[in-house]
Amino acid sequence: MTRLPITKTPKVYVGGAFIRSESARVYPLHDASGAFYANIPQCTRKDLRNAVEAAAKAGPGWARRTAYNRGQILYRLGEMLEARASELAAALQLGGATPAAAAREVAAAVDRLVYYAGWTDKYESLLGSVNPVAAPYFNFTVTEPMGVVGIIAPDECPLLALITLIAPAITSGNTVVALASSKQPYPAILLGEMLATSDLPGGVVNLLTGFRKELVPTFATHAHLRALIAVADPEERKTLALGAADSVKRVRLIKAEVATDWFADAAQSLQAIRDTLEFKTTWHPVGT
């Protein structure tokens, strides 16, 4: 007997749930040979708004977790990816990656999560400080997560680049709203399913799919996003910088027209964690 094909309706992972766009719009995704593969949610600015609400709600709870626990959860996310590596590799091959290149990218993505899992309880020791001051005060600086971070991922390395941008932000207790690659959204759809089984509280990472043109202006102006990390072309960079200036948010813009080696050791660093931290300095009086 022949079976009817059971195809999956891709949904995005927002606020710990799998949702369609509130607009009910989708756009077709084709595989490398040009054949129709699936309909991808075409998220709107209202979906972005809802995702930011979900991220803001999850923020305090995530930041209150012990650094050690955040590390455990990030490591477990790596485990989840590792267990479903072949599925992720297949998703990357949809975009034309060779089997070898796809496997290499998945392995690098898992390693990147493990890298940042190791940093969760260590970055504070390097970035925080006790400061010498010329008065009877104990003066120290500690870091705090900024809050909700907006991330806009590039089209190349749709899994590795996305994780490279998300992982350092959540390492320190930020929560994230990320726009996946428009051309290759499927790895992000699968990543959402793995996030859901990784012990990461709902709302810490929210993944949207859709068109950059529709969402970049809202990323720029949304006042509740405290930082933007984006791979963007010159025109988008201008939009993001202008909108961010209005709402006084931090931006780290990576030039889309300059090739980034997402596999390089330089793509992961303590500096990337620092990008989404605020520093708080306290002057504490000490007795003579």
Binding site: R45, R49, A56, T218, T221, A223, H224, D246
Partner: peptide, 10 residues
């Protein structure tokens, strides 16, 4: 008024 989504703490 502004066209930009606002943060509740404003």
């Amino acid at each position: 008024r502004t066209g930009a989504y606002q943060a509740p703490y404003s």
